[in-house]
Every structure is written in structure tokens, then in C-alpha cells.
Design a protein around this nucleic acid. Structure first.
Lengths: 242, 242
DNA sequence: TGATACTGCGGCAGATTTGCGTATTGCCTG
DNA sequence: CAGGCAATACGCAAATCTGCCGCAGTATCA
């Protein structure tokens, strides 16, 4: 047990890069974000962050405006040339000019120091929530089918052939989400966010339980919820093996 | 070119609802947003806004926290029951509690009065930009192929012809990285950083193991992971030798 | 208000994954 | 051609992951 996995070793965890020349601030931000389940890498300069980003992208970037080398603004501009990664700018000043410049250059949010670590975490969460909302939004077809299942959204029914399955609310939401993402691997994190909601404090293992109960009811439906080892689940049409 | 597009669109402007009991503020917000190309409807109370929203949805909602009737928080909660519409909260206070509560309830942003109209417009633009980014991203399917292999990122599958390979998480990540850098020499260090993560404490020889296991599964796939002596590995398409 | 249904959690056992020690084979250099 | 470092091959044991139960707190409904 000599090695800690730098926090949570969850494949679904969002990766965040932080650049700030103040080591204390970096540490605080890192600690808070990690305790919230994010995977964080921090850099003393924006240039280093940029360099790292180019070799490996992340899910969100937090940039201090004033740093040695390239300023946060410059790094932001540079990032935007190749990526749409969400960016949060930090600044000591609170001038409207800075404000407009930051958001104008393509950052998603702009926080002035001093700020509470908690509020930063909230902002981060808000951005990820927005992204998840959008990914969830993708079309709302009245009837989706996967294998031998049919989703009847208005009726809040999922039909096995012609007979509606008897599902509990959680089961229904979960299966619905899987059907809307059939054949795609869905991480436990994602399920938790989409089905249970965001603020909810539930163990990721809860998904396993619901999936387990669902599998029993789905027996011989032409579909299967298979496990994606170390990641989550995937709904697939199995030709129907008895 | 593909950057500016705050709110002006050919296919109908974004519709924004604003609720604030102060008529002056409403007017200012409305004027600024409209001059930026948005379509705005304003309401003196959150209840009226909610009522209007239920009969016709909009693209973004701006809510004052303190209003006669239901508070902004209550309206926010109510909206979130049925919609993922972006919400910006306005408040006179700047307590962390309020802050956390606002974002916690599902709003996207939180602005304290007094605020400049311009900064509000910037926030609004930032949110719409984020949404545009996401919808853009969704429209770009990614299918990389190398030799006889196909990477199906959403499904988290790597197909050998039409059959998905059975890969462990590490194997998947490693092979994916090699496919994205096909025909290029990749150092062990690089692999360690990309696949295992930045600060992980594992010997570089760990890559050898995964590569070894991968080679077995890749036998006769039209590709080969060859060793680059003293450096690392390279994925190459071998014409397919039996 | 009492019966019933849902849900999430802790605990287990079995199955898988994976890094490392160690031995063997292979390539480069002098 | 020999020496030496690098790459492979094995097998193992610890660490993880999954699926499953049973249970208890809570919500739902008659």
C-alpha cells in the first residue's frame, strides 16, 4: 500500500488542470477539488499547463490570469485554438475590462480573488452539470427501441414486445438512459449524475444494485446490460440467446 | 470565424425570460440583452415567469432571488423539475450560503448585485457558447482505424473487423493511444503519462507487460506493436502475415 | 395507520486485472 | 565474437471489480 492513486482512482472521474503561480492557492484548489472526486493536476505556470494539455487533454481548465510567462488570457486564447474545453479564469482584479476580456476570449467563467474554495467547487460542478444536461438533451424521440424493448416515454412505459415491464422509478430512469445510449459504454459516474441527479450523495455501487434488479426483469428480452470492466455498463442487443 | 456568435442567429434569436421586481433593473437588463440580439420577455415576479415558461419554454432564464411571491430559489427548483434550461440567479447578498444554495439547486450561474449590465451579457454569451460547443462536439463522430482495427470510442470498443476485442481497461487505453498515434514511435515514458496518468508510481516496465498481453490478443489483426529499441513501441500495419 | 414496495449500504465470494521478481532470449557495440 | 544492456516470457500475489444477499430506513398506498 505504498502508493496512493493520487486520490480517487475512478475511470469516470473528470480530470482538471490548474495553473497558478501561488503554490498555496494551487494546493487549496487541488485539495478541495480532489475531495469532491475530481482528478487534479496543478502547474506553476500557464505554459506548463498548456504543454501538458497538448499531450493529454483534460475536462476542465482553471487559469490564474497573472502568472510568469504567458498570462492566463494568452493561455486561454491558445487553448481555444484547438479545444472547446471549459475554462475558468481566476483574477485578483475585478475590473470590468478584465471581466469582459476573459469571457470574451472564450472562458466559461471568471472568478475574482479572494474566493472561497467552496464557491469554486460549485462553479466547477455547475459547468459539468450544464455539459451533462446538454449531452442528455440529444433529441427526445417519442419511441426508442433497442433489441426487443420499446421506450414509450409519454406513457412512462418500457414495453417488452407488447407487454409493459413492471419497473420502479429508478429502474425506469436507468433503463431509459441506457436505451437512449444503446451500444454505448456508460460510466457509473454518468449514470449517477443523469439518473440520480447531481447533489445526491450516493455510492456509485448503487448503480450496480439497480442494474442487477433490472437484469432480472430483462431476462430474455433480446437485450443485455453488460458490464464494462472498470468503467460502467453498456446496453447491447443480444441476438436472443436462451 | 467559428467563434463569435454570441446570440445573433439567422434561425431565430435566443429567447430569454427575466424576472425581477425592480422595474428599472428589468428594463436595463432587457435593453442590453436585446441590443445584443436576444429576444427578451420580462416579468415582475418569478411566478409569472414560471407560468409563462410552462406555456412556452425559452432558452435561458434570469431570476432575481428576492421577489414577491415565490423566491428565485423556489422558481429555480420548480423549473428544474421539468427542464434543463440554463438559469442565472441574481442576488443582492453575497453570502456563501446563498451562493452554494443557488448553484446547488441547479442554476448555472450566480451574479451579485450590483453588477454591470455588460458583465451579465457576457455571462449569458458564455453560457450559450458552452452550449454551442457541446452540440458541436456531439455532431463530430470519431472513428479511427488502423490496419484491421477500428476504434469505437463511445462504445469503448476496439473492433477487430467487426468483432470487438476483449480488452481490460489498461489494455484499452494503451491500444487506443497507440492507434491515435499509429506509425509513430511512442516512448514508455509517454505511455506511462498518457495511460497510467501523471503522478502514478509504477515502473516503466509495466508498459511492457500490457504490450505483451496486447500482442497476444492482436495476433493476426493486420497490425503489430513493434519495439523501438531503447525507446518504446510503435503500432504498425503489417500487411497481414499468417 | 399499517402493509408493501423501494432503495441504498455493508459484507462476501469469486473472477479479473496488473505490476513486479526472475529467468531467458535478442540486439547493439567494441 | 563476446559482453552487456534491453526486450520478452512466466507465474504469482495483492489489489480491484462485480454480482448477489440480506437488511433496514423511507416512501408509497390502501
Amino acid at each position: 500500500m505504498a502508493k496512493t492513486n493520487g486520490g480517487t482512482r475512478m475511470d469516470g472521474a473528470k480530470r482538471i488542470y490548474v495553473a497558478d503561480d501561488d503554490g498555496n492557492i494551487r494546493q487549496i484548489i487541488k485539495t478541495f477539488l480532489e475531495s469532491d472526486g475530481f482528478e487534479v493536476e496543478d502547474f506553476p505556470t500557464g505554459d506548463l499547463l498548456l504543454q501538458r494539455f497538448l499531450e493529454r487533454e483534460c475536462d476542465l481548465v482553471i487559469l490564474d490570469v497573472m502568472m510568469p510567462g504567458s498570462s492566463g488570457f494568452e493561455v486561454c486564447t491558445e487553448l481555444r485554438k484547438t479545444s472547446t474545453v471549459p475554462i475558468i479564469m481566476l483574477t485578483a482584479r475585478d475590473s470590468e475590462t478584465d471581466y469582459a476580456m476573459g469571457l470574451g476570449l472564450g472562458s466559461d467563467d471568471y472568478i475574482t480573488k479572494p474566493f472561497s474554495a467552496m464557491s469554486l467547487v460549485m462553479r466547477v460542478r455547475a459547468i459539468f452539470r450544464r455539459i451533462d444536461f446538454e449531452s442528455q438533451k440529444r433529441a427526445a424521440p417519442v419511441a426508442v427501441t433497442a433489441g426487443g424493448l420499446t421506450l414509450d416515454e409519454p406513457a412512462r412505459h418500457i414495453l417488452r414486445g407488447r407487454v409493459p415491464l413492471s419497473l420502479t422509478p429508478t429502474e425506469y430512469e436507468l433503463l431509459k438512459y441506457l436505451m437512449l445510449h444503446a451500444e454505448q459504454a456508460v460510466s457509473r459516474e454518468e449514470l449517477l449524475n443523469q439518473v440520480w441527479g447531481f447533489g445526491t450523495a450516493v455510492e456509485t455501487r448503487a448503480t450496480d444494485d439497480t442494474v442487477r434488479r433490472l437484469r432480472q426483469k430483462l431476462d430474455g428480452c433480446g437485450v443485455a446490460i453488460e458490464a464494462v470492466w472498470g468503467y460502467g455498463f453498456r446496453l447491447t442487443a443480444d441476438g436472443g440467446k436462451p
